[in-house]
Design a protein around this nucleic acid. Structure first.
Lengths: 235, 235
DNA sequence: GCGGAAGTTTGCGCTGGCGCAATGTCGCTG
DNA sequence: CAGCGACATTGCGCCAGCGCAAACTTCCGC
């Protein structure tokens, strides 16, 4: 409902190679809403009705298995689009989107996607790039899950989060939203227990500093080395 | 270099909502090549130079980890495009593509992608759908790897292969290309040994019939049930 | 500031699946 | 058709990580 200045978003990947006029036209079709922490934006299986752009905050996308286990598919960072199932030919959302923080998102009705793409072909190309890089990331995760142990997967997960949502502090780089051990477990396919043990060990070694739902990486490079370490290669 | 009749490909997802003239124009830019079994089409890390459409045969896309382990990212089925990294903004191929059978592929130089998309915007939209469904599949695999045991993952892998490349026989549905235990292991993040044991058990139960590099599903439904079974739910 | 809920840690027993070695089997090539 | 190389199977020992129970800590609302 509040107006969004095109200068705030024109630099985003979605708007690449679109001029200001085009950006403004596209933005006019959206309205922005505030989403309080823990609010569900859309649910897995729900009919697709809107697509979104995250302006501020953090969104978590999760999938629920038939067995009732939850898996975190990804965290959406500021500036990213999400809920774009219809562009990929889906009629229902493949995952549930929940605000991790109080967030602000732009909302478009899916009905205008076709028209937008027709009017601004660059939109499709830009979206393709976004989806492509997510495909990349997903494949990387598949490879990780296939070949690495829990400790390495946790290291990768934290590094990924820090890269997209890290905040520099005196002690190191902090993940700037609440992240529980359970969340990390759901990102890495491990149990809370194993994650907790892993983090404890790292904390003792001084690699990280953590408290309830909060994690600071003190030595990201060491963690990076650990993440890429080859098991039988301890010199 | 042989000419390709547009009637052969016009029905493919890539060409959806494009008229015959457009199809023909796009096809004129491609040339077709025969790829013998086991030939590598492009290698992970190689500079992107072409994108492809598989007309006949089967292609395997693999990623190699720093530790030297191979993971099968996906099998490309007839009619699918592959090697479309540049559309997603990549400059090097993210995986290696190898012919599993003698295959026939259409090849386009990447340089014309931009022009093609500009001339035929539906191409971008169609590609977006394709990439989107692959993202879906990749996420499904991540969820599987996070929550399921090897037996279930193997079941899923076989069912997926049979769906895209199954051939009905007297005994059941056969996967119509050579597939080793090692291959299945690389698709599921298991070892050859565990895969072998799993298949042996299934064979004893009459669920499948297998020999060297060949697998026939005799009771796909039972396998499906097994794949989706909830562990603590054995009634 | 008290009580409870939510999140975290830790110990302990157990097991799915890995690692390796040895053996068996198929299929091709000379 | 012999022999070799690739693929598959099987047995056995072992361990990373799960499952569960219990205790502890932090946070928050009343």
């Amino acid at each position: 409902m509040s107006a969004v200045d095109s200068s705030m978003v024109a630099h985003l990947p979605l708007f690449e190679s679109l001029d200001t006029a085009a950006c403004e036209a596209i933005l006019r079709e959206a309205h922005s809403i505030r989403v309080p922490k823990n609010k569900v934006i859309f649910e897995q299986g729900e009919d697709v009705h809107s697509f979104y752009l995250l302006l501020h905050g953090h969104i978590r996308a999760t999938k629920m298995t038939p067995a009732g286990e939850q898996v975190i598919v990804r965290y959406v960072a500021t500036g990213e689009i999400f809920g774009i199932g219809q562009a990929m030919g889906l009629t229902t959302y493949p995952a549930t989107a929940t605000a991790v923080d109080d967030s602000v998102v732009l909302v478009w009705p899916t009905t205008i996607w076709t028209r937008l793409v027709a009017d601004y072909p660059a939109l499709a190309a830009n979206t393709l790039k976004t989806v492509g890089s997510r495909l990349q990331e997903a494949h990387t995760r598949v490879v990780e899950m296939s070949t690495q142990q829990v400790e390495q997967r946790v290291a990768h997960a934290l590094l990924r989060l820090v890269n997209q949502s890290g905040r520099k502090t005196a002690q190191g780089i902090e993940i700037d939203f609440q992240l529980s051990r359970q969340d990390i477990a759901e990102m890495t396919g491990a149990t809370v227990f194993t994650v907790s043990r892993t983090l404890s060990t790292w904390e003792q070694r001084g690699l990280i500093e953590s408290s309830r739902q909060r994690i600071v990486l003190r030595e990201p490079e060491t963690l990076r080395a650990l993440a890429d370490a080859v098991p039988g290669d301890d010199a």
